[in-house]
Amino acid sequence: MAEPALSIRGLTKVYGNGFNALKGIDLDVAEGDFFALLGPNGAGKSTTLGIVSSLVQKTAGKVSVFGIDIDRDFAKAKYHLGVVPQEFNFNQFEKVEDIVLTQAGYYGMPMREAKPRAEQLLRDLGLWDKRKGSARMLSGGMKRRLMIARALIHRPRLLILDEPTAGVDIELRRSMWEFMQRINREGTTIILTTHYLEEAESLCRNIAIINHGDIVQNTSVRDLLAQLNTETFLLDLARPVETAPELEGFSVERVDATQLALSVERGQRLNDAFAQFSAQGFEIVSMRNRANRLEEMFVSMVEHANAESGRSTDKVEVRS
């Protein structure tokens, strides 16, 4: 059986101030997977990825990258890793091309091999025209793409993306998704953390949810969504209403004068609800999900975990 791209066992991190960021987590990411690591702010996502990429020192536990124990040969494991961190971490005054080529040099790539590779990546990521300019002149989205190009220069088999599309506009985000899907199809295993749950649902096959340093869910996106019992739809009405109608078997709330929220449980048919709306004279002109399906699941899961552990239920930050 092939070694997993990433294997984590009993990973613990206690910071100097006593904060227990990771409480002995176990995690496996198969080779070729597109894997999402989700969790609210401060849950332990970046600490986990920081340990894997050597930016954070672990307190205890084992981490292996393609079967290479990082305690035994971290340098060898690093050849297989590409890291795109959450914060910009390049010299803003350097030229775009120099940043990518310098990183190639750090991996011992000769210039004759690094230059064409850098050109290909900068072209693929729409940065070729900016290659001679200073990195500080790039937009936020371009800076993120520059970090992706830099992370891929040495052809890593495992790419770690820590919120790669944060602050990126929708059009650019879509083009980055297409790029990530392409390199995943070509064989690169991808681990992604994101606050955009739509992103995780669209891109990832497997998912782990981390909260307060514990893995609270680790399954496939499909299985996770199958656990979703209720979906809520927003219905836009042709004419304003004063109160929400009463529908047999369905829960309906009035959002505002021209919008209703309809909750549909698993096994119920939308046709039944629409038949009752029509019978009562409601004319519905459009409909959409109130929230991303995964988002609903994520929020309920994290809040449930918080309630079980007796913690205050912090507002879970999600963006969709």
Partner: peptide, 8 residues
Amino acid sequence: EEMMVSPM
């Protein structure tokens, strides 16, 4: 961090 993540 560019140096730290590399095998250098």
